[in-house]
Amino acid sequence: MNQTNPAHPGGSPTLPDVQRLLDAELSLRSRLGYVALLLGSLGMAALAGALWLTEPALPFRTQVAFALMIVIGLSWTVFSVWVLRHRRVLYARQHIVAGRMAVAFTSVFVVSALAIGYGSGKDGAYAAAALGGVMLIGAVLMLLRGHRAFNRLAERRDGLARELGRST
């Protein structure tokens, strides 16, 4: 913020400065990174929880390890939700992209867990698939909500553009 705006010798922040701020703040890559972190950490916590609940007579050290994995997974989940709500907020288009990522991720998670369960006959895999199913429902609902919000805004934008004689 050290450049000087010729219009303000004293100097308001120059437009290029603000453009750089926009570039950093609006970076799609960083947003999608946090969406991926959210999905991955949630998946890890769900998998560890399912295995812990369904494996009988686990050694104490293994139980501690699962508990730690769940805590770590949920901590990253909370952190990424906080970032996406306060620092890298998702705009309507990005909600749809995030929703699609969530549906794809949870679908792969469910199919993989079912395949493992079918191949190994382990209850833990089926429990993980059930948890994944719940996450998949949440992801689909999130995607539908994202589409509704986007359509509502796009409709309003187009209506205003017509009123104002602008192109969209």
Partner: peptide
């Protein structure tokens, strides 16, 4: 103003 705001909200 609303047109501008809505387009920003769309991203």
């Amino acid at each position: 103003d609303e047109w501008l705001a809505v387009r920003c909200q769309l991203g």
